[in-house]
Structure formats: C-alpha cells, structure tokens
Design a binder for these strands. Structure first.
Length: 328
DNA sequence: AAACTTCCCAACCGCCGTCAA
DNA sequence: GTTGACGGCGGTTGGGAAGTT
C-alpha cells in the first residue's frame, strides 16, 4: 500500500495553470509565505494540490527566476557541473542563480545532451564515445587531436589541450622512468596551474593523455618558482567550499567502500592537489607501476591514506572537468 | 495551405528521506 | 519500530509551437 497521489482527491484541477490561478498563488505567498504546501491551496482558494502549487511557484512564479535563453557561461557551467555531479539537477541549479532544476534538466535533455551525442561525446561520462570509433584510429593521437578540435570548436570552449597540462603529463610520464624524489621535486618546482591560464580540462582517456604526452616529449617544464600552495578548484568551486566538496565525496563514497570518512578524504585530496594536480591524479592512477613504486612520494607528503587517494581518483576519473588556480 | 514531424518545456508521476505521532 | 504526512528530487509525458515536406 503506497501513499495515494496527492492529486487524486476529487475536484482538484490538473494541467496548465491559468493566469488567475497564478495570481492567486502569488498573492497568497506574498502575503503569507507558502507555509505548509498541503494547506496552501485551501487557504489560497485554489483547486490544486499542494504539490502542484509548490512546483508552479518554484519552477515558474518565484520572483527570482531568470527567464530567457541560457548564456554561454551558464551552459558551460552546466556541462562542467554535470560532469562532476551527473543528473543532480537540484545541485546544479543551486549553483546557477535564477535557474530551476527543471529548467536545467529540460535544457540538458533538449539541447546539450543532443549536441554532445552528435559530437560523439557520451553525455553521461563526458568522454568520447569509444563505441563509435574505429579501434585502430582510436589509438591515433592525430585523430584525437582532430576530434578535440572539433569538440572544442563546437562547444565553443577552450580546447582540451592546455600547454600546462601537456607539460604536466610529460613530466609525470618521464618521471615514471625516474625516481619518486624527482617527481616530487619536479611537481613542487613547477607552478603547474595558474589562475591566468585557467581552462577546462575534460577528462582524458588513458590512451589520450599518453599520446598527448608523447607528442610533447621535448616540451620543457616551467621553472617558475613555487609560489606556495596550489589550490585545486573543481568547476570553479575551490576545495574550501565544503558543501561542494561534500557532494563530490558523497559520490565517491557511493562508488567506493574504501572511503568512510569525509574529513580524511578532504584532507587527503587537498594534500594530493597540493603536490599534484587532477591530471596527475589520473595519470598516476593509470600508471600502476608508478603508484606501486612511489611510496616515497606518498610518504613524503602528509597524505597517509593512499587507498583513499586512489579511490577518489578512481571515482572522479573520467567524470570530472577541472579548473584550478593558485593561492597567492 | 495542409499534413506531418520534430522540438520544447511546463507539469505530472512516483520514489525517497525525514520527521512527528 | 511503524506509519503516514510532507517536501524534495529525477524521470517522463503530452500538448502546443515550430519546422519540414
């Protein structure tokens, strides 16, 4: 025995709202606030169920709702947030002032999702749809470079390849052949992410980052002085935004039983981002050899739970686009 | 101009978590 | 511990608008 739908009662109207009904609802809420949605329809003399009133108010009548087309920035934000949060429309809406979850959901399903599909991007993983690709060409970095150009151009966002990321990839891959002290030294010696060069970095496929790095073997890394802690931002929300980080870690927790304590995760992740970067997380993860041989690297940091680190990387891998800036 | 198809989005449905009785 | 009310959420739908033949 489930709960009866709230609109099953006799005499309750369904379907599109009239202007008169809208006016009644607005007038009532402006005077009294919505209070209990259950009792609102009766008090406001509306032949609607409370749920219908709530939806009408939150999705349409609320005064702070922004109408009209989504801006480029909003669209970009939606894509980025979706890559981290998935179909958590209310969470995404919470970060887009004036937009409702329903509106964002509709926009995603009718515009962004279709566009990504047309471009050969899986709208769920935000990765290129490998099922559409010829396996032989999939391994070709040339093809990937071409594909990323198309994606970038169509999306109107910055290209996947950021020189700083290339440098990082190069550094990390080279470091696989050297000792972990070199890695730590090199990472700390480089101002890898800078707020002036912030870009969005959709997740790399393991093959892709490798081919990118191979294309840039002779790219030298920056020797800019280390200017303090490099802070990892995820989609514009830095690691100090506890609420946002919690959401990510909830997701991580869902995907990994290894993660039990958000506090530890935050600590570990923060440390990881300080000494490394999102791309390096993935590269490290993709390189079991490096992980296995990098005990010094891990011991050298305050990160004491390598398993959590790996689990976080794993759960975020292929789902996250990244931005970063530097704490000055 | 009419018929048909596709697109869009407001609204609904059903499920879930929380809370109070 | 159980039950039901309630608010909130994500998925889905249906009808009107827009586009195409």
């Amino acid at each position: 025995m489930g709960r009866a739908p709230c609109c099953d009662k006799n005499g309750l109207k369904k379907g599109p709202w009239t202007t008169e009904e809208d006016q009644k609802l607005v007038d009532y809420i402006q005077k009294h606030g919505h209070g209990s949605w259950r009792s609102l329809p009766k008090n406001a003399e509306l032949q609607r169920c409370g749920k219908s009133c709530r939806l009408r108010w939150t999705n349409y009548l609320r005064p702070d709702i922004k109408r009209g087309r989504f801006s480029f920035e909003e669209e970009e934000t939606i894509i980025q947030l979706h890559s981290v949060m998935g179909n958590k429309w209310s969470s995404i809406a919470a970060r887009l002032p004036g937009r409702t979850d329903n509106e964002i959901k509709n926009y995603w399903n009718t515009h962004i999702r279709k566009r990504l599909l047309r471009m050969g991007i899986d709208p769920i993983t935000h990765s290129p749809r490998m099922d559409l690709l010829d396996p032989s060409s999939m391994l070709s970095s040339a093809m990937y470079n071409s594909a990323q150009m198309t994606i970038s151009q169509l999306l109107g966002i910055q290209p996947f390849v950021n020189q700083e990321v290339l440098k990082l990839a190069t550094t990390l891959l080279l470091s696989q052949q050297q000792n972990s002290d070199f890695l730590l030294q090199n990472l700390q010696g480089n101002q890898i992410f800078n707020h002036k060069t912030v870009g969005q970095f959709p997740p790399f496929h393991p093959n892709q980052i490798e081919s990118l790095a191979q294309d840039n073997r002779d790219c030298t890394t920056s020797t800019a002085p280390y200017l303090g802690e490099t802070q990892l931002n995820i989609d514009g929300y830095n690691t100090h935004d506890q609420d946002f980080m919690d959401k990510i870690f909830e997701n991580s927790e869902y995907q990994s039983n290894n993660i039990n304590h958000n506090v530890n995760i935050t600590q570990n992740f923060s440390v990881a981002s300080t000494i490394s970067s999102p791309s390096s997380c993935q590269t490290l993860l993709d390189s079991q050899t490096l992980l296995d041989s990098s005990s010094t690297y891990f011991q050298g940091s305050t990160m004491d739970d390598k398993e959590s680190y790996v689990a976080i990387c794993s759960s975020l891998k292929s789902q996250t686009s990244w931005t970063s800036n530097e704490l000055m």
